[in-house]
Amino acid sequence: MNKKLAKIKYLPNNFEIIEGGDYVLCAVTGKIISLENLNYWNVDLQEPYYSYKEAAIVREKK
């Protein structure tokens, strides 16, 4: 089965799938995040993160 990169709009408590797919890429590491496991993102930057660790890295840079 071919996996496809999804296009997502990140909202405060949820996300909206703009273009269907199976995964997104972490903005920090480039790791694949399946949509079922997508839990961390930044609404202002519209970026997904693999885990809380990557989200903290971005938050510390501000």
Rank of each mutant, 00 (worst) to 15 (best):
A56P: 02
Y10C: 00
L38S: 01
N37R: 12
V43W: 06
L5I: 10
A56E: 15
Y40A: 08
Y10A: 01
F15Y: 13
S51P: 03
K3V: 12
Y52N: 15
D44F: 03
W41L: 00
V28S: 13
E36W: 10
Y40P: 03
G20E: 07
V28F: 07
A27N: 08
I18L: 10
N39V: 09
L38C: 04
N13H: 12
Q46M: 03
N14E: 10
K31A: 08
K4Y: 12
Y40K: 08
I32T: 15
Y40G: 06
N2C: 05
Y50G: 10
T29Y: 11
L5D: 04
I57G: 01
E47M: 13
T29M: 12
V43M: 07
L38Q: 06
D44M: 06
Y23H: 02
T29C: 13
A55M: 11
N14V: 05
Y50T: 07
N2L: 12
G21D: 06
N37E: 14
L5P: 03
Y50F: 14
G21C: 07
E60H: 15
K4V: 12
Y50W: 07
G30T: 10
G20P: 00
S34W: 00
L5A: 09
I8T: 06
G21M: 04
E36A: 12
D22M: 03
S51Q: 03
W41I: 03
N39I: 02
M1V: 13
N14Y: 10
K3S: 04
L35V: 01
P12F: 09
N42D: 11
E36D: 15
N13F: 02
K62P: 05
K53Y: 15
D44E: 14
K62D: 15
Y40H: 14
N13T: 11
W41F: 09
Q46V: 00
V24T: 05
I33E: 01
K61Q: 13
K7M: 09
V24H: 00
I17T: 10
Y23G: 01
I17F: 04
A6C: 01
E54M: 01
V43Q: 13
I33R: 02
Y49L: 09
K31Q: 14
E19A: 08
